[in-house]
Design a protein around this nucleic acid. Structure first.
Length: 443
RNA sequence: GACCCUUUCGUCUAACGGUUAGGACACGUCCCUUUCACGGAUGUAAUACGAGUUCGAUUCUCGUAGGGGUCGCCA
């Protein structure tokens, strides 16, 4: 029997990293075993469902590279894949339970399932045998007075109908599984294989909520993370290749995606490490892809950054790229490259003020730069060297002043390539203006 | 509170019952360097506690404590 797994989100909120990892693990398990991955939308709670949430989930999964073999916009032999459209199926299964005497109706019309009240042993692929004592548990409600069905019931019915063989879900479902096993038995169907994976928590150990930074997959999309990187990092939470590798492709993960490589304890989400993983992937990206990623991010910004519409942008990106770990850091570099009127930063002012003979140095430097035969990094370096020789100082001493004249900042991209990129006609006025401002204030 | 899962550096994790308990993120120091990063080197840092089994326990067993989860006519 071939493997069939599913991810069954409820479209009541954004796609959470915990949910995304559950989806990812199911997907990996399916792909590792040549199985089928089903996406099923559990939208039985009409009051809480939103179209936006469903779009975010579908979009987030696709972004992460998690594709489904059966599900929304794809269909398949067990369509529809929205629980809201499967009422007739639930009615039929409900009748079976009624006829077999497994149910009773409350005064208000709600229907409960008569639990056998036994002690169950749940053979879990990750936790081992889990004892679940159902003897003192109240009977679960499976249908509301208005005729709509409860999660436990529809979840099991669909898993039966869709021939799900393995259920991989969070540990928070362990006790639900006890209820679900009872339903499977009432239907005379063998329950699927269960694997309850540990949860993902905040760094402080609390449960991740929507408000926490990085809790929603949408955050990584907005911040222009690479989906492969996020997926890679998610895999490292609750799974390990059992060696020292941390950057792994899906192809490398698949043969190692086995129960014995799964972790047993909850993991705290470390956004810093996720950023580091992303930086590893970013560094390996080819230039066109990097540029595309960067430009797409720039165009998404509600407050346009300097350079966004500038034809020189593509020329500036290779200067910035080696300096940043994430695309949003463009916001720190673009203003100093594209905004020639940007004020001189305070720390730059004070650092230069400490330099002796500043006015003379700047003037000498400018004179030599103006005389550079071509505005290229090598000629500019020669000009700097000559200026330094005239002043009787080391060339290095002129670099910080020149940097400040160029960008107004004490840090940034490699200076000479940046000047070359700016071009003589753009650079010189900038240098002169800032030099004038500096000498005016220091005098 | 009851029940269930769980426990190795701050974090993610390795370690046939025998290792100087390894790697990575973060942090510190040094090197490289015109700045910032990158890179290289290096340092600080962990087996929750108590019993038991064993020649020997991070590893197996039990207990305690901590963390998390679940106790819905939510999913």
């Amino acid at each position: 029997m071939s493997v069939r797994v599913r991810f069954a989100p409820s479209p009541t909120g954004y796609l959470h990293v915990g949910g995304a990892r559950t989806a990812l693990f199911n997907w990996l398990y399916a792909r590792a075993h040549g199985g089928t991955f089903v996406l099923r939308i559990e939208d039985t709670d009409e009051a809480r469902n939103t179209a936006a949430a469903q779009a975010a989930i579908v979009d987030g999964l696709r972004w992460l590279g998690i594709d489904w073999d059966e599900g929304p916009e794809k269909d398949g032999p067990h369509a529809p894949y929205y629980q809201s459209q499967r009422g007739a199926i639930y009615d039929a299964y409900f009748q079976k339970l009624v006829e077999a005497g497994h149910t009773y109706t409350e005064e208000n019309g709600a229907v409960r399932f008569r639990s056998p009240k036994e002690i169950l042993i749940l053979p879990d692929k990750i936790c081992g045998d889990i004892k679940i004592d159902r003897t003192a548990e109240p009977d679960m409600t499976i249908r509301r007075p208005d005729g709509s069905y409860i999660f436990h019931f529809v979840n099991v019915v669909d898993d039966i109908e869709m021939e799900i063989t393995h259920v991989i879900r969070g540990e928070d479902h362990i006790f639900n599984t006890g209820k679900h096993i009872e339903l499977f038995q009432a239907f005379g169907v063998d329950p699927p294989v269960y694997a309850h994976i540990p949860l993902i928590l905040n760094v402080d150990g609390s449960k991740m909520s929507k408000r926490d930074q990085g809790a929603a997959v949408g955050y990584y999309q907005e911040q222009a993370f690479l989906p492969e990187a996020v997926s890679n990092y998610l895999c490292l939470l609750g799974w390990s290749p059992k060696d020292d590798r941390e950057i792994l492709t899906v192809e490398e993960i698949l043969p190692l995606f086995r129960w014995e490589n799964m972790g047993h304890s909850n993991a705290k989400f470390d956004l810093e490490k996720c950023r580091w993983v992303n930086a590893q992937y970013l560094a390996k990206l080819d230039t066109p892809s990097f540029d595309h990623l960067a430009i797409a991010w720039l165009l998404r910004q509600t407050e346009p950054l300097p350079g966004t519409d500038d034809p020189r942008l593509v020329g500036a990106l290779p200067l910035i790229r080696p300096k940043i770990k994430g695309i949003p850091e463009l916001a720190e570099h673009l203003p100093m490259l594209f905004d020639g009127n940007a004020p001189i930063a305070e720390d730059a002012q004070s650092k230069l003020a400490a330099q002796p003979d500043l006015g003379n140095r700047l003037a000498t430097l400018l004179t030599h730069l103006e005389e550079a035969p071509t505005w290229t990094a090598s000629d500019l370096q020669s000009a700097i060297n000559a200026a330094a020789a005239t002043l009787g100082i080391k060339p290095g001493a002129l670099m910080l002043p020149l940097r400040v004249l160029t960008t107004g900042q004490t840090h940034g991209v490699d200076l000479l390539p940046a000047l070359e990129w700016l071009g003589r006609s753009e650079a010189l006025p900038r240098l002169r203006a800032r030099a004038a401002a500096l000498t005016a204030t220091s005098a």
